[in-house]
Computed example of a mutant assay.
Amino acid sequence: MLEKQINEMRENVDIGIESENRKEVVGILNTLLADEYVLYTKTRNYHWNVVGKDFKERHEFFQEQYEKLDEMIDEIAERTRQLGGLSVATLNEFIQIANLKENPGEYPSDIKMISNLLKDHESTIKFLRKSAKDCDEEYNDSGTNDFLIGLMEIHEKMAWMLRTHLD
């Protein structure tokens, strides 16, 4: 059922990308959307639950990060709609298709929080890099290729910021 919803497309979108290719790209975007939502939720969780001597700095840092992720989530859902697809939009759907996983019941130290987020950003960067290439070379969608590269660059900066907290 979820697969059918993800692949449901409006056939009257005539932007020079074949319907089957748009379906594949929509699948990529929905997986990315789910991953971003898991990462957003983790970051928000850490914002709420961070403790320690660097509380204020970490609390504000996590807020900056989840606010950026929130913007990206909206842009990904809108790109999906631009291609004629439907955006997954429930927690259940996100968990079903996300590559990233939650860690329920875990309340790690602030350094472990940062390390966990860094790992997720790096995983997302790898997914974006492969997906951008696929969009360009396999699906003839240079627009989504460019869009994904822009998101990858944002994640690379966010990962760098996280990494600086670990040095």
Score class of each variant (00 low, 15 high):
8 E>Q: 14
11 E>C: 01
16 G>H: 05
16 G>I: 00
22 R>I: 04
25 V>P: 02
26 V>R: 02
30 N>V: 01
31 T>G: 12
35 D>K: 02
35 D>N: 15
37 Y>P: 03
39 L>G: 03
41 T>P: 02
44 R>Q: 15
44 R>S: 06
48 W>G: 09
49 N>Y: 07
50 V>Q: 03
52 G>V: 02
54 D>I: 00
54 D>Y: 05
66 Y>Q: 05
69 L>Y: 15
69 L>D: 05
69 L>R: 11
71 E>D: 15
71 E>V: 01
72 M>I: 11
72 M>D: 10
75 E>H: 13
77 A>M: 01
77 A>Q: 04
78 E>F: 05
79 R>N: 07
80 T>S: 12
80 T>E: 10
84 G>L: 01
94 F>C: 07
95 I>Q: 04
96 Q>T: 09
99 N>L: 01
100 L>D: 06
101 K>S: 13
102 E>M: 00
103 N>D: 10
105 G>Y: 02
106 E>L: 10
107 Y>L: 12
107 Y>E: 14
109 S>H: 10
113 M>G: 02
115 S>Q: 15
116 N>A: 11
121 H>T: 04
126 K>R: 12
126 K>S: 14
128 L>E: 08
131 S>C: 06
132 A>M: 06
133 K>W: 14
137 E>V: 12
138 E>F: 06
142 S>R: 08
142 S>C: 01
152 M>P: 10
159 A>E: 12
161 M>V: 00
165 H>A: 08
167 D>L: 13
167 D>F: 08
167 D>N: 13
